[in-house]
Design a protein around this nucleic acid. Structure first.
Lengths: 213, 213, 213, 213
DNA sequence: AATGAATGAGTGTTCATTCAT
DNA sequence: CATGAATGAACACTCATTCAT
């Protein structure tokens, strides 16, 4: 920055914006790596070196993009929320009753995590992992969003004398657990998982769909 | 202490069990402190010093009782499981159908965590806590047990072509979430929470009870 | 001590001096254990607990007999020297020339370590041991004694224009090394080892005896 | 530093090797410090902090260069062996009989330790040191090499019915002891020490040279 | 005296973060 | 901006020693 030759070579060697592109690429490379690493080892166990190792960058570079390990973690949450919220809202905008909202929201969520697949590996090996794994921050953010949206939709649909807090928490928990399990199975069956959650939360055990073997 | 003979035997010979009493007290003090600390900060973030600080003991004392940080963590799981499993089994022994088992199991769980109250403070301040919170190991153990029992009961009741994995995971997640919320509320309403969970899982949103304000 | 019944039972149950006997026995039990442990693990690696574990006594008892780990170590040296010095002196009293003194001294040393056998296990597994083993303090003391006696005898025998320091150090080193090797072999051959050392130091390689296979 | 072009290239681009130089310097500074510290206090007593204190570096820096305390210790052995072995081999290649090999080997060893002087300070203050001193790993490695070479040469010269193990161990022990003493004297007399060892091992006490006072 | 739980300074090692190059 | 060596606070854990019983 205080090196004038840098400016020149920028112009000569790089297309305009090329540097900005690299910057953005690095930022997101770190973010992606962090998502993986935090998923696999949890926030505390993950080291900054674990993260940058996957990017090919240097430790120093990490601190050029994020001020701390904590900051990437938060950025991850922001990122997840920023990308999922619009999807969720779009999907659920036209929902009129609880069941349709539920289906839209859960479907959106499952499609989202299915798309992120790799990155959301998260609990895939939770069974045998050292137990000390952690919530990806994106989940937290997403859950907050879902919780809010849920509350709103429910308020519109049902008499608000139902225990909304309990219901929202329950629905989110179910979506989360089933989502994790869904990712663990192959082939990936988003529709089946969505059907299950919607059915369970709408009609209870009695209305549950039969899985196709 | 409230045993007058203790004073006498103290002088002549060691009060039988006096030392053992202190040891047991310290052991459980460490266990309690560990439960709190792991709840508040998670396994990784929690330091051995965090734990012993709450007991007034020394670092060395910690290692007199547990061989490692890991071991207290495991002991916590054992402890929780050991105390809850029999309760759970007793309660659910006579259950004949899914609904009755569900009610017995969930009721047992909610009563258990309600009784542990203080100790199970767990996520009570999760909202404002440093985000990096974690599962208490006891929960893990208990959940495993519940999951197993659930599978068994369900097999008896329903055709086993329902997605048992999804269902067990969902039920456990719901019980957990609602249980946490329940503890956060006052007055404590175990019955209400139990009703909610049973109703939701049995009949879906439609059958949900109305909360008494 | 402030327990009057103890005094009584001491008199009733134990022969007079019995207590003193126990004390002496404990002292030497600790000493023996320490010799073994220091031999096997070296001073630094050996822990006080390692030592008392072999005596059946308690940590506290250890500090009743010795003020510190260091003190047992020193006591070991004193002990070794105290027991070996008279033997050495008796054996070498009538020696008139270097060769006869050498034979007497080396023989005495080899017999001594052979007798202590077990305790002097010392380097027996030095080859595969973690390298970080240490000189038993007894060796140090014994060596000092040998060195002194050597100097004296040599002065009498040879013109003192030979390099006494070099010679004494060499002879001690040879005795030590060969002694260690001797203990490693079976059957134990004190005479053969003595012959070797005497021959080597007296007449060099040329005069060496042939080993019996 | 004494390279004028360095200044220029420093500004434009990193001086090639400048960093590498510092790294190498630090590495060897740590190695040297470790040699001293291990010599003075032994492996167990020596702390990593003791070592780095002498380098002015930080604890962390130590682990930048060596993965563990153990590793520096081993590196020390490698280092010593790597540097001495070729010298030893070169010196002893043309030896035809035991006496000439002995002279070449011992001479090489004494010259080596004399050259290393400072570093090999080793036992110089062993007399008043905290007793708990230890073999520098380099000695171990070097001794192994000497032992091997000795066996080979002796096999050629003498009937192999002499006790080679005893002889090799003895010769090595003598060289070591005399070497230590030699370093303690001033002026340094490598030739005198070599003469002594060769004479003692070849012809025994009888053939010993007279020291020049 | 004997016991063994308690103490806490000290050890090896890790890792987020800084900064000279 | 990138690099990666340097830093040092912090951690889990050990162990000589003390001391109440």
């Amino acid at each position: 920055m205080n090196d004038p030759t840098a400016e020149i070579s920028d112009i000569v060697e790089l297309a305009p914006g090329k540097r900005a592109q690299t910057k953005a690429a690095n930022r997101s490379a770190i973010l992606d790596a962090a998502r993986e690493v935090f998923s696999e080892m949890g926030f505390e166990s993950a080291t900054v070196r674990d993260i940058i190792r996957r990017t090919g960058l240097s430790v120093g570079a990490f601190y050029n993009y994020y001020r701390s390990k904590e900051e990437v973690f938060d950025a991850l949450a922001d990122d997840g929320a920023r990308r999922f919220r619009p999807i969720l809202q779009a999907q659920s905008a036209q929902a009129t009753d609880f069941a349709s909202y539920l289906r839209a929201a859960v479907g959106a969520y499952f499609n989202f995590i299915a798309a992120e697949h790799e990155a959301w590996t998260r609990n895939l090996d939770a069974e045998n992992s050292p137990v000390h794994v952690r919530n990806t921050p994106e989940l937290v953010a997403v859950f907050d969003e879902v919780r809010r949206a849920f509350g709103a939709t429910l308020g519109r649909t049902m008499a608000d004398d139902v225990d909304l807090d309990y219901l929202a928490a329950s629905a989110i928990a179910v979506a989360r657990e089933v989502g994790d399990l869904m990712l663990r199975r192959s082939p990936l069956d988003v529709e089946g998982a969505t059907d299950f959650v919607v059915a369970l939360l709408s009609g209870g055990v009695a209305g549950l769909p039969r899985p196709r073997v």
